[in-house]
Design a protein around this nucleic acid. Structure first.
Lengths: 204, 204, 204, 204
DNA sequence: AATGAATGAGACTTCATTCAT
DNA sequence: CATGAATGAAGTCTCATTCAT
């Protein structure tokens, strides 16, 4: 029954999806929806929570826990893209719909996103340590810098996820998207750790 | 009068912002709003168009046209972050609110975004040519690959923009954000063009 | 099971008392309620009837049948006040709730009330006869006059019953209330029968 | 527009009168009702307040201020019966419908009733003083006793008002009803003040 | 030109009521 | 027999939208 909610909310938005529509889509009557989930608010919240949990679970399951940091990141990204591609409505619900409807809903998603950002942040830290252990000199990154990088990475992933989940055929596979993103991000991180970051003065 | 619309829509969302609110916020009467902008739909569209145009204009003005590709990208990003930080409501309208309402609204934003992605894509192409001209061997990137990179970059920028525009004091300045993103992205692009991209097999 | 109905209806009113509440209060399941009493209407009616019958029975039992008219009236009133004080929910049901819900319910109560008014009317008649038999000259009262007196007496009793049944400690006992009412009413009746009634012209 | 509310509420009760009905009865559309009176609750409250104020005003205007106490009471009662007879719906609203809905409604009516009871109480006190001034020995009545008498008198009046306001032709005129009630009540009060009240022991 | 006043359509929510077990 | 599960119908309230002034 939440399936119907997710689908309806993802496609029409919170307001435009009427409880009638959802009930009909679920093949039950409206009062039944109210019996199980007490209001539109709670229904929406339940949908968000379920999809957020499913996404986080999928990512967790995909991460190769004891691998090097980059491999962990890559596997996590692959899991992320695979999940969003398989559940485009869930992804739309989280990424697009939940953010527009007042703080109380957005909070749920923000919490989930923070969890992911935190995970990425720790991977970046782990990468720095690995590099140091390998004998390379590694600059210590400031907290803001790391947060920024993690946020940028997550944002890039979300952007690509919109693409892969778009349903239109042209998009890349989950592994391709993950590889593109690693290409995009990992080298820059390495350079940064070596103190060779890009700067406006040293252009070219 | 559009100002009121932008503000109300950005803060409350399309549905929750009532025409009464907007008229009051604008200091005029409701029928006047209807006289100039014929419906809530058109008002919203007009708001989106204005903000989209303003953002694109700001970016265009910021780009240092005849500089090397990376410098162009950096200046454009700086302009982008500066604008979104100065117009957080406009940014919220475009990035958060406009995407949820049925396609007719989303189209406007999608078009603007496509324009920006296209610009970034061409910069990446220009970078490849510069590198080739400089004598370095440069692998030719596939179209999908370039699109993916551009999309990732734009997504990352959007994610950082949410951060800088958040209003909370802690965020970085526009130039810092732009630099972070260049650090993040440009080295990876360079490696990629040299054929040294990251791949799952060659980890570490 | 009617107990639950009486309680719920008296406290929440007909509409606000839901069948769920009543079933739960009675400790049975809702369909069982429908098995015995076919609808909310019939349940309400049954409650009213039971309480009305109980009240009338209590009054009947209290009346000292062969005593003089005033003593009969007094004992009846005492029984009335005692019963309403002991069954405040029943009294509320009859006096407050049943009258607000459409004619069909009110009729039940009206019928009961008419019965009581009729009883009082006859007592007044009996008092007149007693007085005549005692040798006093007794004016014959018109029908309307008697009806009015009986109605006034019953109304006064109801008003006092609300007071004694109020649950708040300060109220008088049943016997006190009955005595107050007799004081209030009986002397006036006596004067009236002697043709010495109050009239606007003969003030003071 | 309140007229429609009063009528609908008086005839159908608070719950059974739908806002649609009221709007139609008032000859306007439903949203207009909500524009002026914000909710069904407030509409009901407004109706009650208006009718209560009208009733109190009518009684105040009818009382002959400087007359002896009995004359004052009689004129007030006449005004009361005249008003309720002329505004039967208002009377029903106050007396029947307003008492059932959760305390917030009832409070309004209780307050009005308390005001009237207080007025009657003072008249009884005034009568005692007049009698004393006239040289007659007058027993002092206890507070509870006076309250009970006043309450009984008001209850009797209400009961008669239901009769005169009933619409059915047979009822008495306002002045007749007032006279009946004075007959009923005043002599009893006089006896009581002389210490000759009725008591169960001194029957006959 | 500008507005106060008004409405049609539709959304969420609640119950009395009934089957299938 | 007794019930858990389900629904049809109805009610309150809101808001984009339009006349008459």
């Amino acid at each position: 029954m939440l399936d119907a909610g997710v689908r309806a909310f993802a496609r029409s938005g919170y307001q435009n999806a009427s409880m009638d529509d959802i009930a009909e889509l679920a093949g039950v009557s409206k009062p039944l929806v109210y019996l199980y989930l007490n209001s539109k608010d709670e229904l929406f919240t339940a949908c968000i929570r379920r999809e957020a949990a499913a996404l986080v679970t999928a990512i967790r399951a995909a991460v190769e826990r004891d691998a090097p940091a980059d491999r962990q990141l890559w596997s996590g990204l692959s899991g992320f893209f695979a999940h969003t591609a398989e559940h485009p409505d869930g992804w739309t619900l989280l990424h697009v719909q939940a953010r527009t409807q007042g703080r109380s809903f957005a909070r749920e998603v923000v919490a989930m996103r923070a969890e992911i950002v935190e995970f990425v942040t720790q991977l970046i830290g782990a990468a720095a340590r690995e590099r140091a252990r390998g004998g390379a000199r590694a600059r210590t990154l400031a907290g803001t810098e790391v947060s920024g990088l993690a946020l940028a990475l997550v944002g890039a992933a979300e952007s690509l996820a919109d693409w892969t989940a778009d349903g239109r055929a042209g998009g890349p596979s989950a592994k391709e998207a993950a590889a593109t993103l690693m290409n995009f991000a990992w080298a820059g991180l390495g350079n940064l750790l070596q103190g060779q970051g890009w700067s406006p003065e040293r252009v070219g």
